[in-house]
């Protein structure tokens, strides 16, 4: 579904991504683990097509099409979705409007049903993300992605700033967006996903099939997400660079 080849990118002239290679097939959920500042958010932003980030080398292919130079909305309409780590406040645009924009229709019943499940009914007529708590902002991101229903969904640190109760709600929504709930095997699913996590906690609520360790702008290690996390909990990220036992 998504194929990233030799991708390098910089922001404000500063190189961040360094020859990233990553292939995600239909049905697969990948987890990207890595320390703060390693460039995880940058990778998602580049996949989404944010113009602030400059692609200096490499290609991104989605559903067989080269989208390296496509606009954000072309990618969104092609089926890519992103739940932001820190979504912006948009004054004057309500949560309800965002849901309608995502689903492409004005369906009051559907909007209400989704909002009820995510405990966001009181937020529907407030400006999106305006004064939202950490948990509310993340749930609002889930609300929008559920409405948008992308084929390939990216989640940037969905658990950051979220308590356990909220994490269960967020994790549940992710599992639904990624179709991992009913369809446990990758071959049955039509969706694919990339989950960025610093702590790994969210993986207790939504299962990932593949794990990657991301450091200094590139993927340094691949493996089973649980094993990778166990390793990192024990030895930290720095040890991971030195170790080469997981090289595939």
């Amino acid at each position: 579904m998504l194929e990233i080849k030799n991708l390098s990118a910089s922001i404000a002239g500063k190189p961040i991504l360094d020859k990233v290679n990553l292939t995600i097939n239909k049905g697969e959920i990948h987890a990207l683990l890595g320390p703060n500042g390693s460039g995880k958010t940058t990778l998602l932003m580049v996949i989404m097509g944010m113009p602030r980030y400059e692609v200096t080398a490499g290609t991104i292919t989605f559903q067989g099409k080269d989208i390296t130079n496509a606009t954000i909305d072309e990618r969104a309409r092609a089926g890519i979705g992103l739940a932001f780590q820190r979504p912006p406040v948009v004054r004057g645009v309500t949560t309800r409007q965002m849901v309608e924009i995502c689903s492409g229709v004005k369906d009051e019943g559907k909007t209400m049903a989704l909002a009820e499940r995510l405990n966001l009914v009181p937020m529907l007529d407030r400006d999106i993300n305006q004064g939202f708590s950490g948990g509310e902002a993340k749930r609002a991101e889930m609300l929008q992605l559920l409405a948008q229903n992308p084929d390939f969904a990216m989640f940037d640190e969905p658990e950051s700033g979220v308590d356990l109760d909220n994490m269960a709600i967020v994790g549940g929504a992710m599992a639904e967006i990624l179709e991992t709930k009913e369809m446990r095997r990758t071959g049955d699913r039509n969706k694919a996903g990339l989950i960025v996590t610093h702590t790994g906690h969210i993986l207790e609520f939504v299962n990932a099939d593949f794990g990657h360790i991301f450091m200094h702008g590139s993927i340094v290690c691949n493996g089973n997400p649980r094993d990778l996390f166990a390793e990192i909990r024990e030895n930290g990220y720095e040890e991971c660079v030195r170790c080469n036992k997981c090289q595939q």
Partner: peptide, 24 residues
């Protein structure tokens, strides 16, 4: 810019995003 881009990730073109924000 960041707000326009946010709306674009939800499928609006840049012009649509700008006019939605202006209207708001």
């Amino acid at each position: 810019e960041e707000e326009v881009e946010y709306l674009q990730t939800r499928g609006l073109t840049k012009d649509e995003a700008m006019s939605t924000i202006t209207r708001g």
